[in-house]
Computed example of a mutant assay.
Amino acid sequence: MWIAILTFLFILGFLEFTGVIWHNDWFARKYEIKGLDVSHHQGEID
Rank of each mutant, 00 (worst) to 15 (best):
M1E: 06
W2R: 13
W2H: 11
W2G: 15
W2C: 06
W2Q: 11
W2Y: 12
W2I: 05
I3N: 09
I3T: 06
I3R: 00
I3P: 05
I3L: 14
A4D: 15
A4I: 10
A4T: 02
A4K: 10
L6V: 09
L6Q: 10
L6G: 09
T7N: 04
T7L: 15
T7H: 01
T7I: 10
T7F: 14
F8M: 15
F8Y: 15
L9E: 07
F10H: 00
F10R: 09
F10I: 08
F10M: 12
I11M: 08
I11W: 02
I11K: 04
L12S: 06
G13S: 13
G13E: 07
F14Q: 02
F14L: 11
L15D: 06
L15W: 06
E16R: 04
E16A: 11
E16H: 06
E16D: 13
E16P: 04
F17G: 01
F17Y: 09
F17S: 05
T18R: 08
T18N: 00
T18H: 02
T18Q: 00
G19E: 03
G19L: 09
G19H: 09
G19D: 03
G19P: 14
G19C: 02
G19W: 02
V20P: 03
V20F: 15
V20K: 11
V20M: 13
V20D: 05
V20R: 07
I21N: 09
I21A: 08
I21Y: 05
I21R: 06
W22L: 07
W22I: 08
W22C: 04
H23G: 09
N24A: 07
N24T: 08
N24G: 05
N24C: 06
N24M: 05
D25M: 12
D25K: 09
D25Q: 09
W26M: 10
W26R: 02
F27S: 12
F27E: 07
F27Q: 07
F27R: 11
F27W: 08
A28I: 04
A28K: 08
A28F: 15
A28C: 04
A28W: 13
R29E: 14
R29Q: 14
R29A: 14
K30T: 02
K30D: 03
Y31R: 08
Y31H: 12
Y31I: 12
E32G: 03
E32L: 15
E32F: 13
I33W: 00
I33C: 02
I33M: 07
K34R: 15
K34G: 02
K34V: 03
G35P: 01
G35E: 00
G35Q: 01
G35R: 09
L36C: 07
L36M: 06
L36K: 12
D37N: 08
D37P: 05
D37L: 14
D37E: 04
D37V: 06
D37R: 14
V38F: 10
V38Y: 10
H40W: 13
H40V: 14
H41L: 13
Q42H: 15
Q42N: 12
Q42R: 07
G43S: 03
G43P: 03
G43F: 04
E44F: 13
E44M: 13
E44I: 13
E44T: 03
E44W: 15
I45K: 08
I45G: 10
I45M: 08
D46R: 04
D46T: 04
D46C: 01
